[in-house]
């Protein structure tokens, strides 16, 4: 149990550490004249390469059915709009953390969606959390 706790924490911290280099590198590249859409191509291409290597090593079965593929295509389109908007915001914002924070604030919409359409409990703790996020992003946007 203890070892499992340390394992997930160690893995999460590794993931966090690698994620920390992403946006500063994009911002620095933009300072060198690389547009956010070109930077995003580079990011997706090399991230895909990394994942392909992983799946080849793991000999993963990559087959998916047509309906799943259709949802993947739809998700990709929305994901591209998200990333293009956020990366563009990252390179022009006064601090790269602000657009990342506002994008992550989609948690508010997710919580409200779950409460309205999936009848998930919307208790005092969730109201407090949503209020904190809302106050935080209003301060950042002022």
């Amino acid at each position: 149990m203890e070892s499992s706790k340390h394992s997930w924490l160690k893995l999460t911290l590794i993931s966090l550490l690698f994620n920390l280099i992403l946006y500063p590198f994009v911002k620095y590249s933009n300072n060198l004249g690389v547009s956010s859409s070109v930077a995003l191509v580079m990011y997706f291409v090399f991230a895909s390469l990394g994942m392909i290597i992983y799946h080849i090593k793991k000999k993963t079965n990559l087959k998916i059915d047509k309906k799943t593929f259709a949802i993947v295509i739809l998700t990709t389109l929305f994901m591209l709009v998200t990333n293009l908007s956020m990366w563009q915001a990252v390179v022009i914002a006064p601090n790269i953390g602000y657009p990342i924070l506002i994008t992550q604030a989609s948690m508010i919409l997710i919580t409200l969606y779950a409460a309205i359409f999936q009848k998930e409990e919307f208790n005092i703790k969730k109201i407090l959390s949503v209020t904190l996020i809302f106050i935080g992003i209003v301060i950042v946007m002022l």
């Binding site: 893995l11 999460t12 590794i14 993931s15 690698f18 994620n19 280099i21 992403l22 590198f25 994009v26 590249s29 690389v34 930077a39 580079m42 990011y43 997706f44 291409v45 090399f46 991230a47 895909s48 390469l49 990394g50 994942m51 992983y54």
Partner: peptide
């Protein structure tokens, strides 16, 4: 950007 991309794959997989 190459490093960022490869790091991105590690982020998600890990």
């Amino acid at each position: 950007l190459t490093t960022a991309g490869l790091a991105g794959s590690i982020v998600y997989l890990v």
